[in-house]
């Protein structure tokens, strides 16, 4: 079953990659590529956060810290001129994993709301370090002067299309990894921890260690999002690690839905599309966005993907009931 599931996931992943790669030929427009890369970066942030929120029941308010950490480590390494893109990416991901391990080890012991507070506190701490350590990070001005993109393996990311393809491939690889985590026995253990931590404990699961593991995995995946963003904007900025970025990631999750694996990605698409249009037509985007949030939270009461999914489920049940009644 797992084997078949894996093959099916792989097929879907390939299909997704094909869609992403065909897209620029269907809509041959550089703005389209920008949009997708943007969605990929924030999509990775949101999906990795959902590993914690949706699948483990760990509400983190400080997830953007790892997004920023990925972007800054990657940017600094590239600006040093001593590293190629693949190596710099690996070090940035590894460095962020280490950071997440240290912070996670302190945070995951706490329950619910206190976990959320502590992750928030650490994020604010990291943000203030970025702002204060001007000689390294450039402070509020961010990493200035662009992030060089030297060619590697014959790939030149200075070309817009190559960058797009590269980001798409990285994204799909991350999707497959996260999907495998979620579908593995480990993933099901996480769901059990979410639904009933005491029961998991009785069954001999080391809850703290499991939580720490997923915390680190989520952090590393967020760092990939940060790297994609740093490559795209050719810089890294303290705002990447501000609490508003975490807030947006949470918003994307809620917009898309927590129940389906793909939910947060849909949320990312929705929010970016919304942002795009709202910014075009009005400068009162806060007003519009606020009202949209209220409609989702109080009206739909769940994310869009969840809403559609449950609606289908509901219809299916009714269908079965009807058939049974007949």
């Amino acid at each position: 079953m797992t084997g078949r599931g894996f093959l099916r996931d792989l097929a879907i992943a390939v299909a997704l990659l094909v869609v992403l790669l065909v897209l620029p030929t269907v809509v041959p427009h550089p703005a389209m590529r920008d949009f997708v890369i943007y969605v990929i970066a924030y999509g990775l942030l949101a999906m990795s956060l959902n590993l914690l929120v949706g699948f483990t029941g760990l509400v983190s308010f400080g997830h953007a810290a790892y997004f920023a950490s990925g972007a800054y480590i990657f940017g600094l390494l590239m600006q040093s001129g001593k590293f190629g893109i693949p190596l710099a990416m690996l070090i940035a991901i590894g460095g962020t994993a280490l950071l997440a391990l240290v912070i996670g080890a302190i945070c995951v012991r706490l329950k619910e709301i206190y976990f959320a507070f502590l992750t928030l506190a650490f994020q604010m701490f990291i943000h203030s370090i970025i702002l204060t350590w001007v000689s390294l990070t450039g402070g509020d001005q961010g990493l200035m002067g662009g992030i060089p993109r030297p060619p590697f393996l014959g790939i030149d990311l200075n070309n817009g299309m190559s960058l797009y393809v590269f980001c798409s491939v990285v994204f799909v690889v991350c999707m497959v990894i996260m999907r495998q985590v979620v579908q593995s026995p480990f993933g099901y253990t996480l769901r059990m921890i979410r639904d009933n931590p005491h029961r998991a404990n009785f069954l001999g699961v080391n809850v703290v260690r499991m939580k720490l593991a997923i915390f680190v995995i989520a952090g590393t995946m967020a760092s990939v999002g940060g790297i994609v963003m740093a490559l795209f904007v050719s810089g890294a900025y303290p705002e990447f690690g501000f609490w508003t970025t975490s807030g947006e990631a949470i918003f994307m999750i809620m917009l898309g839905g927590t129940q389906l694996f793909i939910g947060p990605f849909i949320g990312a698409i929705l929010l970016q599309t919304l942002n795009h249009y709202v910014t075009i037509y009005t400068e009162h985007h806060g007003l519009v966005l606020g009202i949209v949030i209220l409609v989702f939270v109080l009206g739909l009461r769940r994310g869009l993907a969840d809403f559609v999914y449950l609606w289908f489920q509901d219809r299916k049940t009714k269908q079965i009931e009807k058939e049974a009644g007949r």
Binding site: L16, V19, L23, V26, V27, H29, A31, M32, F35, V36, I262, I266, I269, L270, T273, H276, Y277, A305, V308
Partner: peptide
């Protein structure tokens, strides 16, 4: 979902 996404992309751009 992906069709909707593509649709959203397409209208965004065009």
């Amino acid at each position: 979902a992906s069709a909707a996404a593509v649709g959203a992309f397409a209208t965004t751009i065009t």
